[in-house]
Amino acid sequence: MSQDGIRSSLRSRILHLQPREFDVLALDIFRYQARFNPLYSEYVQHLGINPETVGKLTQIPFLPIQFFKSHEIRTGDVPAAEVIFQSSGTTGQVASRHFLYDAGLYKDLSLSIFEKHYGPLNQYHILALLPSYLERSNSSLVYMMQHFISCSDSPFSGFYLHNAEEMLETVKRLVLAPDGRKILLLGVTFALLDLAESNRDLRFMGNAKNVIIMDTGGMKGRREELLREEVHDILCDAFGVQEIHSEYGMTELLSQGYSQGGGLFRPGTSMRVLLREVNDPFSISDHNVGKSKTGGINVIDLGNLDTCSFIETQDLGRFGKEDHTFYVMGRFDNSDIRGCNLMVL
């Protein structure tokens, strides 16, 4: 079969993936990328690995995420990128770039992942408080939220740059005159904290049963870094809610994980988190190794079909008690602070 034929088949399998099929599809994508991705192929060869002998997920080599800072990661003979996502970073840091060759796949996957966690988007009003991201034209988070806002088909859905007062008036209006939809207030961490400390009355949201507060992470140098638990305690108290929801995603990934409280993330169908030993990146586990066991997070993202689906991140995590769930515990000391999520020890 030609490269185009293999890709077409894999793309269809990703979009129709059943959980029990994940391992087989991941291995097929590994062999596809080890053959048609020049950089990843060289990396695999350098490690002395024969792709045909790899029979389980823990044997797959994971590409260090830093390569997204120095290379255009590309698998196969793909057309020109439709979009180039770029990480925010801070002054002096080299930004990661993720070339999006198949916007349709990304939109379909991100929509499917959200709806499997939260239900149909057309049952939501989406209010996105993303000031720093809106100031850039190449944010993957803004791109995804533009798609979600469009799919919600709500006249109240939209972005808010610095107009928090207008956003709160919109929330109050929707709370006082409920129309059967839920209200998703999604914000970057520093903006939610600014709102929480603004002396505005926010606790009316906790009395409404249809309001979800979701933290996308990120201080972006605007505030002192805090533990996720500290941030969520502040936000819960300010908004009068029991739980703060969270999204786990990054520039280098096209799939997301979501937490509906307590910091426990559930990955999307096209995503799987494995853990590697902190001092041995090639010792990898894909099952619960104990509540206290912390390791480096490796992500399998089948959505990265045209780049690389096997990413060694600089996040630290541990497994949850339920299969494939995970917590994010922090960052490796020598890694850049990522702008997309709050990941601090």
Rank of each mutant, 00 (worst) to 15 (best):
L226M: 12
N163H: 14
E243K: 10
N207M: 11
I212R: 03
L193P: 01
I213S: 01
V142G: 04
A196Q: 06
C151M: 15
F156C: 11
G158K: 09
L192Y: 01
S137V: 14
A238V: 02
S157Q: 04
V175D: 04
R181D: 05
M205V: 09
A177I: 13
N207S: 13
A177E: 14
A196G: 09
E197T: 08
F204R: 05
V142N: 05
P178T: 12
S139V: 06
K209W: 12
E225W: 08
S140V: 05
D201W: 15
T189V: 01
E197R: 14
F159R: 06
G217E: 01
D233A: 14
S150F: 15
H147V: 04
R173Y: 12
F190P: 01
E229H: 06
C236R: 14
H162C: 12
N210A: 10
M167D: 01
G221V: 04
S140D: 02
K172P: 00
I212G: 03
K209E: 15
S150N: 12
L192P: 01
A208E: 08
R173I: 01
E169F: 09
E169G: 11
E166P: 00
Y143A: 15
H162G: 12
S139G: 11
S152D: 06
P155N: 04
L168T: 02
I183Q: 03
L184H: 04
H232G: 08
S139P: 05
S137L: 13
S139T: 08
V188I: 15
H245D: 13
T170I: 10
L184R: 02
